[in-house]
């Protein structure tokens, strides 16, 4: 089954490609913004310390950021799921391109993440995509991150976040915040993949979405296949963005409740 059919996105995607008024915060790696399947998209850069466009197209950060951006905002004619190309994608890079190795899911410190969340909220994001894990957690920094999530709650900004790929039972400082929607990765039959973290909090407040053998954009024009909870998150983010495009007067609580019902 096609991933967008599995989560019943197909009809919604036929109704709309999204509205540019709906801004999506993408806190990830930088994006290959000159990619031919992305240049038609509504990409807006919010630069942190790093630029929003890739400087090294073969870096992990660029590959990851470009793939997730493609799931959300590629042209509908591209091989990527391309859920909501007419929504505005706010690119807020958080991963450095200098990271070596092939990490499955890039990581950020809680302080860096909190700063990026505040930036996205201030730039008018309605929904934020967190396809990432946390590194070096500390109590003080976690408090700052909680404040960022609380700000998102008070401003009605929804947050979809990766459950994590350790194959463990339990939640993180990200997924245990009650406003955050944790996303588990499933295969194309709807069963959770082995690597996906699960748990009672995740099971109660979260959603499952396709995260196995997903075809998407590579940073250098090639086609990539990726999996994991990182890849599952933008299916939820994209669904939220399309729903809000169709129902612009709906509150964040209404959108969230409709998804959880």
């Amino acid at each position: 089954m096609h991933p967008t059919e599995l989560v019943k996105l197909t009809r919604l995607m036929q109704r709309t490609q999204g509205s540019s008024d709906i801004r999506i915060g993408l806190i990830d790696g930088p994006v290959a913004t000159s990619h031919t399947d992305l240049t038609n998209g509504h990409l807006q850069e919010i630069s942190g310390n790093n630029g929003a466009s890739c400087t090294r197209n073969n870096s992990n950060a660029c590959l990851h950021g470009t793939f997730i951006a493609g799931v959300l905002a590629a042209r509908r004619t591209s091989p990527a799921p391309a859920i909501c190309p007419d929504c505005t994608l706010l690119i807020r890079p958080i991963f450095s391109e200098s990271t070596s190795g092939r990490e499955h899911m890039p990581s950020a410190t809680p302080q860096e993440l909190a700063g990026a969340i505040f930036d996205c909220i201030n730039a008018g994001a309605r929904v934020i995509n967190l396809s990432l894990a946390l590194a070096q957690p500390s109590t003080r920094e976690e408090k700052l991150l909680d404040e960022a999530f609380n700000r998102a709650l008070s401003r009605g900004v929804l947050i979809a976040a990766a459950a994590g790929n350790q194959g463990m039972l339990g939640s993180s400082v990200i997924t245990r915040h009650p406003w955050v929607i944790p996303v588990v990765a499933c295969d194309l039959r709807g069963y959770p993949i082995n690597e996906s973290n699960l748990g009672s909090t995740i099971g109660t407040r979260g959603l499952s979405a396709p995260g196995d053998n997903i075809t998407g954009l590579g940073a250098e024009g090639q086609i990539l296949t990726m999996g994991g909870t990182s890849v599952a998150v933008p299916f939820v983010t994209g669904a939220i963005a399309l729903l809000w495009s169709q129902f612009p007067d709906a509150t964040a609580a209404q959108i969230k409740l409709a998804l959880m019902s």
């Binding site: 099971g203 109660t204 407040r205 959603l207 499952s208 729903l243 129902f247 209404q254 409709a258």
Partner: peptide, 23 residues
């Protein structure tokens, strides 16, 4: 629900719910 596995995203059901609320 009491499960460690969350339900599958169902965008169409969410659309139906919102279309009855926001007419």
């Amino acid at each position: 629900r009491g499960s460690v596995v969350p339900p599958l995203l169902d965008a169409e059901s969410a659309w139906q719910i919102l279309s009855t609320v926001n007419t």
